[in-house]
Design a binder for these strands. Structure first.
Lengths: 183, 183
DNA sequence: CATAAAAACCCATGCTATCCCATGCACTCC
DNA sequence: GGAGTGCATGGGATAGCATGGGTTTTTATG
């Protein structure tokens, strides 16, 4: 198996233009960050991986030029998102009782484990060994779009996981109510 | 285990705004102070430790060039943050009933115990013995990002703590409603 | 006021993450 | 159908950062 290309993906700045597009604040609110599709890229001997261009486009314009990654606590995968999401998370946590246990736990679980991975000139990031190990990634890394966030898996592991998920979904037919635009 | 590098973290960028408190979430103004990830650095024989570069970057531009540290009263750790946050904390405490017991306790627990640790030319600080002892730090110090603040632990002690926190979080599925961007 | 200890200041060093340039495939546009 | 461009990939050069240790200035002490 190898890299699949051009399968469209994230929605960044309206037109398929890539440049740095940039405008974060669309007139009515937040910039749309959407990660779609799956991309499998190679991890070179320096530990670098190219973040799929569409994902990069979705992240364009955020305060930090790169991704934030941390170990998923349910799966053997790496969770990824942009810095803006973390900032929002921080705000949310700040609203919890100042020295409460819940707050402590969340902070140690999420922020302590989060790594900021800056893009190099070519849009690659270095996967910290700790994260790579947790996901069992060595040669290849699969970037999985999940809407507002994405995950990074060892390709084969993900394939297995996906099959299972699909089977489960078919089993109890998961449903979802669509949010109204202004809700 | 030893020092992990480059996992970048905080965002300093913005304007060297100094004021106090303020706004955390203006659209594109406010400086974003976010401490992420974990960095383990060595404490040299003079008691000096390098504050991770990304953390320094997050603190850049504040009125006091260094960090503020005090003993965590729930854990064997040192709480750390920038001087700006202390100002905000002061405001919060000011809102408590004047002369109330809680106010008294907080004031003496936090402010009386707080140390201002200035950076030296290389971005290091000296850990006051009192604090180091409380956290059981001797050789190495782990800087733990917690969003708006950070903590300093003895590496092994933190590893244990993190495992427990992780387990607890997974257990009662601690969830947190994410704030909407404009909320 | 003199002396010792501690803190602030400086300069040096090694590692590695970051920057920069080069290559080749694949899809797209003309 | 041919050439151009976007994007993933490699590898070498450079600068940032953690770390050590010496020297001067400040603070505490007798």
């Amino acid at each position: 198996m190898h890299s699949q290309r051009g399968t469209a993906a994230a929605i960044g700045g309206g037109t398929p233009r890539k440049g740095e597009a940039g405008e974060h604040s669309s007139v009515l609110g937040a910039k749309v960050v959407l990660f779609l599709s799956t991309f499998i890229n190679k991890v070179d001997r320096k530990g670098r991986v190219s973040v799929p261009a569409p994902f990069r486009a979705a992240l364009a314009g955020q305060v930090f030029n790169g991704i934030v990654a941390f170990r998923s606590y349910r799966q053997a995968a790496i969770e990824g998102c942009g810095i803006d999401r973390m900032a929002r998370l921080s705000d949310s946590i700040d609203e919890l009782e100042l020295f409460s246990e819940a707050r402590d736990d969340l902070a140690s679980t999420i922020f302590a484990d989060a790594h900021q991975l800056p893009f190099d000139g070519e849009g690659r990031v270095i996967l910290p060994p700790l994260l790579a190990e947790h996901a069992g990634i060595t040669e290849m890394a699969a970037f999985i779009g999940r809407g507002a966030t994405f995950q990074i898996w060892e390709p084969d592991a993900f394939a297995t996981h996906q099959d299972e998920a699909r089977a489960r979904t078919r089993a109890h037919g998961a449903t979802l109510r669509l949010r109204r635009p202004d809700e």
